[in-house]
Amino acid sequence: NKSRCTICSKLAEIRHEVSVNNVTHKLCSNHCFNKYRLAN
């Protein structure tokens, strides 16, 4: 079950899903999750 990561755009296994204003951001790693948190 692979999806495209919101941060790095890599097609990968999604580890984190963050839902903001009915938009789901898919994040493939802790690294991308941290980058997402810093950016938002």
Score class of each variant (00 low, 15 high):
Lys10Pro: 01
His25Trp: 11
His16Asn: 14
Arg15Leu: 12
Leu38Glu: 15
Glu17Pro: 01
Ile14Val: 13
Lys26Tyr: 12
His16Arg: 09
His16Glu: 06
Cys32Phe: 15
Ala12Asp: 03
Asn21Pro: 04
Leu11Asp: 14
Thr24Phe: 11
Thr24Arg: 09
Asn40Cys: 08
Ser3Asn: 06
His25Met: 08
His31Gly: 14
Leu27Phe: 11
Thr24Ile: 09
Val18Leu: 10
Leu38Arg: 14
Ser3Tyr: 03
Lys26Leu: 10
Ser9Ile: 07
Lys2Arg: 08
Leu11Lys: 09
Asn1Ala: 07
Asn22Leu: 05
Asn1Arg: 07
Val23Ser: 11
Ser3Glu: 15
Lys35Val: 10
Thr6Asp: 04
Asn22Arg: 08
Lys10Ser: 06
Tyr36Val: 15
His16Met: 04
His31Asn: 14
Phe33Asp: 05
Asn22Phe: 01
Ala39Ile: 09
Ile7Gln: 11
Ser19Asn: 02
Tyr36Glu: 07
Leu38Asp: 14
Ser19Asp: 05
Val23Lys: 15
Leu11Arg: 10
Phe33Arg: 08
Ser19Trp: 03
Arg37Glu: 15
Arg4Ser: 04
Val23Gln: 14
Ile7Trp: 12
Arg4Cys: 03
Val18Ile: 03
Phe33His: 07
Asn21Arg: 11
Cys8Ala: 00
Val23Leu: 12
Thr6Trp: 08
His31Pro: 13
Cys5Val: 00
His16Trp: 02
Ile7Ala: 10
Asn21His: 08
His25Glu: 12
Asn34Ala: 15
Val20Ala: 14
Ser9Leu: 10
Glu17Ser: 07
Cys5Glu: 00
Asn40Arg: 13
Arg4Glu: 12
Tyr36Leu: 14
His31Met: 15
His25Asn: 05
Lys10His: 06
Thr24Glu: 12
Leu38Pro: 06
Cys32Val: 01
Tyr36Cys: 13
Ser3Pro: 03
His16Asp: 15
Ser3Arg: 05
Ile14Phe: 02
Asn30Phe: 04
Arg15Glu: 14
Ala39Arg: 15
Ile7Phe: 01
Asn30Thr: 14
Arg4Thr: 12
Val18Ser: 07
Ser3Ala: 13
Asn22Thr: 09
Glu17Tyr: 03
Tyr36Asp: 04
Thr24Ser: 09
Lys10Tyr: 02
His16Lys: 08
Cys5Ser: 01
Cys8Gln: 01
Arg37Phe: 04
Ala39Met: 13
Ala12His: 04
Ile14Asp: 10
Arg37Gln: 15
Cys28His: 02
Cys28Val: 00
Val18Cys: 02
Lys26Cys: 08
Cys8Phe: 00
Lys10Gln: 14
Thr6Pro: 02
Cys28Leu: 00
Val23Asp: 15
Lys35Trp: 05
Tyr36Phe: 11
Cys32Gln: 01
Ser9Gly: 13
Val23Pro: 02
Asn30Trp: 02
Asn21Gly: 15
Ser19Glu: 14
Tyr36Ser: 13
Cys5Gln: 01
His31Ser: 11
Ile14Arg: 03
Ile14Leu: 05
Ser29Leu: 01
His25Pro: 03
Thr6Gly: 09
Asn22Ser: 12
Thr24Leu: 09
Ala12Thr: 13
His16Pro: 02
Cys32His: 01
Val23Phe: 02
Cys8Trp: 00
Asn40Ser: 12
Leu27Ser: 02
His31Cys: 07
Leu38Gln: 15
Cys28Lys: 01
Arg15Asn: 07
Cys8Tyr: 00
Thr6Arg: 05
Ser19Phe: 10
Lys10Trp: 00
Arg37His: 09
Leu11Trp: 14
Val23Glu: 13
Glu17Cys: 10
Thr6Val: 07
Asn40Pro: 12
Asn21Lys: 10
Ser3His: 12
Arg37Cys: 09
Glu17Thr: 12
Lys2Thr: 10
Asn34His: 05
Ile14Thr: 05
Asn34Arg: 14
Ala12Met: 14
Val18Pro: 03
Ala39Leu: 12
Ser9Lys: 14
Cys32Met: 01
Ile7Tyr: 11
Ala39Gly: 13
Leu27Thr: 03
Asn1Cys: 05
Ala12Cys: 10
His25Thr: 12
Cys5Arg: 00
Glu13Ala: 07
Asn34Met: 10
Val23Ala: 13
Glu13Leu: 05
Cys32Glu: 04
Arg4Gln: 14
Leu27Trp: 03
Asn21Met: 07
Cys32Pro: 01
Asn1Met: 09
His25Val: 13
Asn40Asp: 11
Thr6Ser: 13
Asn34Lys: 08
Glu13Thr: 11
Leu27Arg: 01
Asn22Lys: 07
Thr24Cys: 06
Ser3Leu: 10
Ile14Trp: 03
Ala39Pro: 06
Phe33Thr: 05
Ile14Gly: 08
Arg37Leu: 08
Arg4Leu: 07
Ser29His: 01
Ser9Thr: 09
Ser9Gln: 14
His25Lys: 11
Cys28Gly: 01
Leu11His: 11
Val20Ser: 09
Asn30Lys: 08
Ser19His: 08
Asn30Ser: 12
Asn1Gly: 13
Phe33Asn: 02
Phe33Val: 10
Asn30Pro: 11
Ser29Phe: 01
Lys10Val: 08
Cys28Thr: 00
Lys2Gln: 05
Asn22Trp: 01
Val18Met: 06
Arg4Pro: 10
Glu13Pro: 07
Ser3Thr: 06
